[in-house]
């Protein structure tokens, strides 16, 4: 057989932290193959036929769940849906109780979304299937970061191996509570990009620069226009329910101070007409981003959603083959 086989260095996808650059490249390259599958009329391959993918969503997220479910179905896997609402979780069942019950059904892959940081890590200790983190608390949302990187690479016509060297990406919003920001800071840096983060001072944890090696700004215009400017801007969703915790003023204040409104976008576009605008969705139109900007040709928001399926197919596929390799290894 050919040279040493290159697979993921980790048995689970718990976060971007812990992935090597080779891992990220492998996932992104594999996702590229699935983009081709998704462009076919018959968007389905038999790779995971007969495998069971459990989707454990302890926290509501229709979009991410649908994306993972579609990914699993396009790989011909069976899916098992578990969501917290209307389930025994509301009757006080713990994560572990639920996990053990699901475990009895023998899932090969477990996709988990939970409001507590570290929940997927916990599951990885008690379940035999491979775990894919679909967002845990304020910790990580690795598939979102992977699909964001994938979208940027496609937009800039680069391969994953070429990476994001020489590009500057600015993340704007509630950095301290955002798992999307955490995963993105890690992955963008891993792929060689320079990362700026911006938000009201109340949304920027003190240790940011030290931990992630990013440039921190509490003035969004400084972040976007200082130095050589930026190549892409990622607007985070403002959680309105969190506004009550005195971390921000009104929606209007935020929109003027930090949102990507028309005037700010025009200035950005004038400085760099190749600027890429991203948002993980769902969008609060008129708050963190202007409706027309979200729909402009600079926006890749719909590409992000579309690429999400391919990236999640890649993650499920690689975790499944990784597990198969481990089984073979331990049996030998």
């Amino acid at each position: 057989m050919t040279a040493k086989q290159k697979l993921l260095s980790v048995p689970h996808l718990l976060g971007i932290e812990g992935l090597t650059r080779d891992d990220a490249i492998l996932i992104l390259d594999t996702a590229q193959s699935f983009v081709e599958v998704n462009s076919r009329q018959l968007k389905k391959v038999p790779a995971l036929r007969g495998r069971l993918v459990a989707l454990l969503f302890f926290e509501n997220s229709t979009r991410t769940r649908l994306s993972f479910e579609l990914a699993a179905k396009r790989l011909s896997a069976d899916t098992l849906n578990f969501s917290a609402s209307g389930s025994s979780v509301q009757k006080g069942e713990t994560l572990l109780d639920t996990a053990r019950n699901i475990e009895a059904m023998g899932p090969d892959l477990v996709v988990v979304r939970h409001e507590a940081s570290g929940a997927p890590w916990h599951l990885s200790r008690v379940m035999s299937g491979a775990i894919a983190n679909a967002g845990d608390g304020q910790h990580e949302h690795p598939t979102q970061a992977l699909l964001d990187a994938f979208t940027l690479l496609s937009r800039w016509r680069r391969t994953a191996a070429q990476g994001l060297d020489g590009k500057t990406v600015c993340i704007v919003g509630d950095i301290s509570r955002s798992r999307v920001a955490r995963s993105n800071m890690l992955l963008l840096k891993l792929l060689g990009a320079r990362v700026r983060v911006a938000g009201p001072a109340t949304m920027l944890p003190a240790a940011l620069a030290d931990v992630y090696g990013v440039d921190v700004y509490d003035d969004v215009d400084d972040a976007l226009f200082s130095g050589d400017g930026v190549d892409a801007v990622m607007m985070l969703r403002i959680q309105k329910e969190r506004a009550a915790r005195a971390v921000m003023g009104s929606d209007d204040d935020y929109a003027v101070g930090y949102g990507l409104h028309r005037e700010r976008f025009d200035r950005l576009h004038a400085a760099n007409d190749g600027i890429v605008v991203m948002h993980p969705g769902p969008i609060n139109r008129g708050v963190e981003i202007d409706a027309a900007v979200a729909d402009s040709s600079s926006s890749v928001i719909l590409d992000q959603t579309e690429n999400g399926v391919a990236v999640r197919m890649a993650v499920l596929y690689l975790l499944a083959v990784g597990m198969a390799r481990t089984d073979v290894g331990s049996a030998a």
Binding site: L7, A47, V321, V328
Partner: peptide, 9 residues
């Protein structure tokens, strides 16, 4: 998935 084939796409 039985680990025999090279899984890289």
């Amino acid at each position: 998935l039985s680990g025999a084939a090279m899984p890289i796409l």
